[in-house]
Design a protein around this nucleic acid. Sequence first.
RNA 1: CGGGGUGUGGCGCAGUUGGUAGCGCGCCGCGUUCGGGACGCGGAGGCCAGCGGUUCAAGUCCGCUCACCCCGACCA
Length: 420
Amino acid sequence: MKLSELFTKTSKDIPVGETAKNAQLLIRAGFIFKDSAGVYALLPLGLTVVENLKGIIRKEMNSLGAQELLMTTLQRKEIWEQTDRWDDNNVSCWFKSKLKNGAEVGMAWSHEEQITNMMRLFIASYRDLPVNVYQFQTKLRNETRARSGIIRAREFLMKDLYSYSRTEAEHQAFYDSVTAAYLRVFDQVGLGDRTFLTFASGGDFTQFSHEFQTITPSGEDTIYLHRGKKIAINEDVLDDDVLKKLELDRAELEKLLAVEVGNIFSFGGVKSAQLGCYYSDEDGKQKPVILGSYGIGVTRLMGVIAECLADGNGLVWPANVAPATVHLIFVGNDDTVIKAATDLYHQLQAANVKVLYDDRVITAGEKFADADLIGLPYRLTVSQRTIENEQFELKPRTIKDTKLVTADEVIKILATKNAN
RNA sequence: CGGGGUGUGGCGCAGUUGGUAGCGCGCCGCGUUCGGGACGCGGAGGCCAGCGGUUCAAGUCCGCUCACCCCGACCA
């Protein structure tokens, strides 16, 4: 893609009133557009990042044997009344509206009820189980106050996975496999070294749920981390009993701020029973299906990556998340330099390297600044002094030093770095 | 939902005791530049958030509404 043709442009100005670093950078770099508080549109660069994240997550979900589907945003009141979660006093984040005939509908903030209601039609026998399905769906939540940029939005993209199992043992095995898959996802998106499995409140259903918390000073949650064991406890559930159960010594825990990037939850058979989702076991007896729910906030994840990995000059994307692999620029407006850069652009494209080519005739400073702001993994510079020896200057985004390489060498280095 | 703040060209802002709106960035044209957000000259662009008052006269004073931001509560 040529930068001159890319929608949209970068900006020097920090958006006023936007205090969250993730949103400031993503807006300035042209990845997102803020429509209103907590409501952000994805522009081409941001959408590409989201699609890359979805690709990483999708691969892991499929490897668990889960199947992708897509539920609806409009949801029926009657279903949510069965679990007593329609009432605004019980769930405060509902957006609600009415059909022309007066019937009330809700906008999806979660899909546990809706999807379990649907499952009643497809689960009759133990032979129909287990079933694991997931989706990438927009969630709408009427937060009383949006904040933290795209980390806490009113409208956001979530990957939600639901597991339907026969027994607690079958459920637990799947639950554990999801835990491992989630850790692999956070590893792949560059947050592995700072994201930890965290014990959190299990609500009415189990003692614990598990969160995946990414450590960052701008975090909203407080966790207590045991670095050696790589597990943490959410402040909300920390007490002596919990410490004993998890065999942790309070003195060995670090108190840290973190953002929840994933959450996994066991519902047992309670919700299934409320919604009438039963199956017949081998002995012919009706039993409620064991339900698990597993979420990753995809757009939030983009925000957390931006927030955690950025430096003073702009965004920093891991190679398999970045909207392209290399940011190609030329310095000076000499025809031979421009031709050399354009030739290299075509060579990179032919070699399947994802390249963003800054073909604008502007000052070098602007190009360097934009390259740093957008944050692709590599910057490739063409100038009079590099082409003298038919070489180009290659610089990783996070490393200060540059090195001169030939076109063949560039392609060799970059061809393996593409996002999935 | 409590407390505080802000709404003026696309963006960021200034606007004095009320007298008919200006600056920077960006944008358009021409020229000079070209390794870290260059410079000169010439342009375009505004019902001053909305509604209603006071006044000969309102961006400015008063009232209401809306939107946005910050702190807190909430985040199933």
